[in-house]
Amino acid sequence: MNQEQKNGTSKAMELLKAIVSGDAEMEDGLAELRSDGIVSLEDALTVLKQEVKVDQLVDGPRPDFQALRRSPSEREVSSIEHVVPEVPFLLGGTLYEPQDITRFNGQELHFFTSPNADRMLAVDDRDTMADWLQYEYFDRYRDISKAAEFRVVPGATWFEHDYLQGAALFSHKDRGYQRLSQISMGLFAGDWNDKISSFSMRAIGVVQLSDAYYYYGPFWYYVVPAGTPYAEVLSLTPYGWNDRASSVGCW
């Protein structure tokens, strides 16, 4: 187990913590990459794809980070009502109690958490969210010698009930479902929209949930350290995301 797994964090997560604490900006992380000679994350990922053929994520299609910058309409944003979680959240340098989330109704907030975290990290800017996700994706795989190869099929499995119970829905890495209302749970069981309560991860780093179709958000992300072979979230209730997802993805 490497140091990142012991701490349940990574350099990318430490950068995000500093950003939401008001101690850093996304530009600080990008400047560090440029100091290593990396001008563009897109260009760097293309080079990885050309040079490295051992990891399915690098060698396959990448998540569309630019699509995450698309903002919903003013009407859609004004109708946002956040669900009160069980854990506090850090936003703009302020730690808010769970019930404070209702103060942000009518505003987009996007949440991140990681194993053993006692709070969620909240971002209210889509460009910052998209830039950080791309940074985290690249940081996870730029040193391919540290990327473990697992004899499992990488992906996420979402479950109907807590504790990985009930009907199950699987997605391969770098894939997802952009409209869960079109995914059947089985004969006479309805569809998967607003039905996800827990999930497991195998050989992937990020699970994404959105409470709108087509990944419009708001979003909630679960991020695990590089080299984590398996992880699970046994209940989404503490984060205010039980029975809420309308689109999901993983990478």
Rank of each mutant, 00 (worst) to 15 (best):
L180S: 12
E4M: 10
V39A: 15
V84Q: 08
V39K: 15
D23I: 00
G8F: 03
Y239G: 09
Y96K: 09
L95H: 05
L41E: 07
Q5F: 03
R70F: 00
P98T: 08
R69C: 09
T128E: 08
T46K: 15
V58I: 11
E32D: 13
S10I: 06
R75K: 15
T157L: 01
R142K: 13
V77M: 03
Y163S: 15
V153K: 14
L180W: 06
P154T: 04
M201F: 03
K6M: 11
D174P: 00
E27W: 01
L169A: 10
G249S: 15
D243T: 04
Y221L: 12
G37S: 06
L133E: 01
T237L: 13
I183E: 15
D125E: 13
Y214F: 11
S114I: 00
F188I: 09
M201G: 05
S79A: 15
E86M: 11
V87S: 06
V223K: 06
N116K: 12
E74Q: 12
T128A: 09
E14I: 10
A148W: 07
A148D: 11
D131G: 03
V233W: 03
G217N: 05
L234N: 13
S73W: 00
H172M: 10
A117E: 11
D143M: 04
A122H: 03
D243I: 04
G8P: 03
W158Q: 07
A130Q: 02
R179H: 12
D243K: 08
D55G: 02
V206I: 14
D174E: 13
M185L: 12
T157E: 06
A12C: 07
F170E: 11
S181M: 11
A231Q: 11
Y216W: 06
G22W: 06
W220N: 03
N242Y: 03
W158G: 07
A122V: 00
G29H: 11
M26Q: 13
K17E: 12
D55Y: 03
L91I: 04
S235H: 01
K173S: 14
I204A: 08
Y141R: 10
S78Q: 12
G92L: 03
Q134C: 06
S247Q: 10
R179S: 14
K146V: 02
L91E: 04
D23W: 02
W158D: 01
R142C: 01
Y96D: 04
I38Y: 06
A18H: 10
I80H: 07
D64Q: 03
D162I: 02
G93N: 05
E76A: 14
V224F: 01
S246Q: 13
S171H: 10
G249T: 01
F138M: 01
R75Y: 05
D127M: 09
V58E: 04
M13K: 07
R103T: 10
K53Y: 00
V20Q: 09
R151H: 11
Q208D: 00
K17I: 07
V152F: 04
V87A: 09
S198H: 00
V248F: 05
G60M: 01
E42F: 04
G240K: 06
V58C: 02
